[in-house]
Simulated assay, not measured.
Amino acid sequence: MHFYITGDTHRSFDRIEDFCYGYETTTEDVMIILGDAGINYWLDLSDKELKGRLSGMDITFFCVHGNHEARPWEAADYEEKIWNEGIVYVEEQYPNILFAKDGEIYNFHGRKVMPIGGAYSIDKYYRIRNGLPWFESEQPDEAIKKYVEQKLDKVNWQLDIVLSHTVPIECEPVWAFIPGLDQSTVDKSTEKWLQYIYDNLEFTEWYAGHYHVECEESGVRIMFEEYDEIM
């Protein structure tokens, strides 16, 4: 079993399919998507068609929550099951498409791995004005934050790997921000909370997506279309 990792896909999986062919993966292998997989976005037949395509690919998807997708329980009839020692959300007809539960601690090759998804959408009002999906639940609410912190308490704030969508605020790639966007209008509450976690957590690796760039900022690796493997 291999645990591969990559950034946002936004419903476009051609490159993942090419990767699977090139590496001759099977459904025993896992592709971690660091948020915005976009599988539950339109909440209509097109989502089911996409899931049908992905269910035929030789990989198991493990999706961190992003800000361009619904939470699983908002999207379809998902059930919870235990997978690699943590809870995931899965639909019976698509067993290789798994959605992470924020704050769960998974065992990947003996390493403790926690997903902490969500972010604010800078295109929120554009999407609302134009009748595109926007999800009020895009950022972690107080219940999710409490759950994450309780789980961290149980492991004395020691993890091997964090998988987030956005980043601690001090790790933002400010050079990659959209020119002309007034950052004072952007809700940074998730980034500020992740900063609290970052400052108090003993960890080895931290991966994030969201920004559509490839870089490392203060020990956090931000990914887009490149791949890595958790060994």
Results as ranks from 00 to 15, higher is better:
137 S>A: 09
178 I>S: 09
153 D>C: 06
72 P>I: 03
170 E>M: 08
138 E>H: 07
230 I>H: 08
182 D>G: 12
69 E>W: 05
178 I>V: 15
29 D>G: 09
178 I>E: 08
69 E>Y: 08
215 C>L: 08
14 D>H: 09
195 Q>E: 11
92 E>K: 12
172 E>W: 02
15 R>W: 15
79 E>Y: 15
142 E>M: 02
65 H>W: 01
210 H>A: 03
120 Y>W: 11
91 E>P: 04
227 Y>V: 09
124 K>C: 06
206 W>I: 05
48 K>C: 08
177 F>L: 10
80 E>L: 15
84 N>W: 10
9 T>D: 03
132 L>G: 00
216 E>D: 07
169 I>Q: 08
201 L>D: 08
55 S>P: 00
73 W>N: 10
91 E>G: 07
2 H>C: 00
18 D>V: 11
151 K>N: 10
121 S>I: 02
224 F>A: 05
141 D>I: 07
115 P>K: 06
174 V>R: 15
50 L>C: 07
10 H>E: 05
98 L>W: 07
182 D>N: 15
198 Y>H: 13
142 E>F: 00
154 K>S: 13
160 D>S: 12
162 V>F: 12
100 A>V: 00
200 N>K: 13
190 T>A: 02
193 W>M: 01
155 V>N: 03
208 A>G: 03
68 H>C: 04
156 N>Y: 02
137 S>M: 03
138 E>C: 12
47 D>E: 02
164 S>G: 02
34 L>N: 03
7 G>S: 06
140 P>K: 02
84 N>E: 07
128 I>V: 12
105 I>M: 04
37 A>T: 06
162 V>W: 10
133 P>Q: 12
32 I>E: 05
10 H>S: 02
227 Y>H: 07
48 K>D: 15
153 D>H: 07
43 L>R: 12
152 L>H: 00
86 G>N: 09
32 I>W: 07
230 I>V: 15
231 M>A: 09
127 R>G: 07
35 G>K: 01
95 P>E: 10
112 K>C: 05
96 N>T: 10
210 H>Q: 08
148 V>P: 00
104 E>P: 00
13 F>C: 03
199 D>F: 13
136 E>M: 13
102 D>A: 01
127 R>K: 14
177 F>W: 15
18 D>H: 03
224 F>Y: 14
1 M>N: 06
130 N>T: 12
231 M>F: 06
80 E>Y: 14
179 P>F: 14
224 F>D: 00
31 M>W: 09
122 I>Y: 06
2 H>S: 11
155 V>I: 11
134 W>I: 14
92 E>V: 05
176 A>L: 06
63 C>W: 03
89 Y>L: 08
138 E>K: 10
128 I>R: 09
144 I>W: 00
18 D>Y: 05
17 E>T: 10
130 N>D: 06
190 T>R: 01
189 S>E: 02
218 S>L: 15
12 S>P: 00
59 I>D: 07
86 G>T: 07
6 T>I: 10
11 R>Q: 08
89 Y>P: 01
114 M>Y: 14
3 F>M: 05
161 I>Q: 08
182 D>Q: 11
90 V>W: 09
177 F>K: 11
84 N>K: 15
138 E>A: 14
231 M>W: 06
112 K>F: 04
